[in-house]
Design a protein around this nucleic acid. Sequence first.
RNA 1: GCCUCGUUCGUCUAGGGGUUAGGACGCAUCCCUUUCACGGAUGAAACACGGGUUCGAUUCCCGUACGGGGUACCA
Length: 498
Amino acid sequence: MVRVRFAPSPTGTLHIGGVRTALYNYLLARKLGGQFILRIEDTDQTRYVPGAEEYIIEALRWTGLVPDEGVGFGGEYGPYRQSDRKAMYAEYAQQLIERGNAYYAFDTAEELDQQRSSTENFIYGSSTRMGLRNSLALSKAETETLLANGTPAVIRLKIDPGQSILINDLIRGEVVFQSDELDDKVLLKTDGMPTYHLANIVDDHLMKITHVIRGEEWLSSTAHHVLLYRGFGWEDTMPQFAHLPLIMKPEGNGKLSKRDGAKFGIPVFPLAWVSDDPEQNAPGFRENGFVPEAVVNFLALLGWHPEGEQEIFTMDELISAFSLEKISKGGARFDYEKAKWFNQKYIQAMDNVALANIIRPYAESKNYTATEDFLVKVAELMKERVTFVQDFTETGYYLFEKVRIYDADTVAKKWKPEVKPVFSELTSVIEQCSDFSAAALEETVKTFIHDKALKPGDILPLLRIALAGTMKGPAVFDMAAMLGKTETVERLRLFENV
RNA sequence: GCCUCGUUCGUCUAGGGGUUAGGACGCAUCCCUUUCACGGAUGAAACACGGGUUCGAUUCCCGUACGGGGUACCA
């Protein structure tokens, strides 16, 4: 049984790379009929941000990556929040000490800083630990006294020199580390909380995780994790590792960071983050007008590509096509233009009724009165010309209200003195139409143009400007039919009098 | 610095010892349409470099360069 987990830290928003990690975990779980688990890694109490946990859950729901187990989703392996598991980590750390694979260390932060600045390439390990303040260097009596006095102590992993640690990464293949280069990582902090390394191994073991799919930033600490599994005697059930390439900045060097949203004017979060501190607030894909399916599709293909040349995938298609082996090794640059293209494609392909439901809240927020039928019609006429969901009511505002400004260039070019009376006449003709369908209108107007010995180009642009104010948009007769006779004639008269 | 991972069009990528190196986004031109978009067609655009191995390397190996990540009582 495959069991995977997404284990974010609730330090604020989830960034888009985190969503992709969740997605790949989810896809693998669904593909292999396993479980997808949400675990909250809040072992750093100083970095806890209120609301972050709720944000993470909402983001997963929005993208459709709903966990089978985890914080907020139940399950038999809980609790799924690490702060709620605090007591058990101390017990496991203790167990490691008893097995001779960990030890107490009493060095203060200042002492360690000093070591790092005075010794080049200092590592807290087999070559240095006997000169430091820990239970390996101190006598048993000294150690017991220090502990009895309540001296702040951490528990460190004891790494023996001379070992090669081989990791068989599902994406990268074999990666080897030498234990001499590894430091004796802190496992349990002075506040009694575990570090990521300890909590991660204990939880993955207890939660029966089979595959650890996480960002590449974890690759270099994986050797420590393997040693921890060995230390506990759990190596035979150790999960398999898959380290994902990172998502890079759209321009320049480095991985995509939370600050890049503001810097490049693009969303880097699934949902907007709104907090007490306006400095921290940032827009999200949802608020910028993306549909979740498009975001998922875009993210799925950022660093992964199945056989074939298909680009548009439903979630089910992603699930059946997914495999870890097809994940790229190199980092992928975040391409906002491509994200926009996916969104446009999804909107285009969407059912008009479904789109009407998406448009409705935008229309309501602008106090537009629009019936279901009207919104469906808006969807039909506009969906081939929008990129974002708010474009229906923004660039297509003229479908909901009177024209705000008339395109000056077109007016200057087409609104000639001699056509003005003809235009009035046409308005009257339109007013007389009994059949206000697009086809009938077109027939009427074209006959009129023909009878007046005019060209379509003399009249049609003016009709468009009168109705929409711009030379962009749906077919004129479709718009007129949708607006109805009263509104159409009103707009034509309004335009004549400008 | 040390450890570690990577490198095919501007971007996301396919491919893989012998290919006209394929697709997508973006860009350009044209067609459709007397609007815009959609759609269609066409085009410009890539195997980082140097050594091997080989009859033959973009593909395999080794270096170099460049880039990423790690190097905390953060995750």
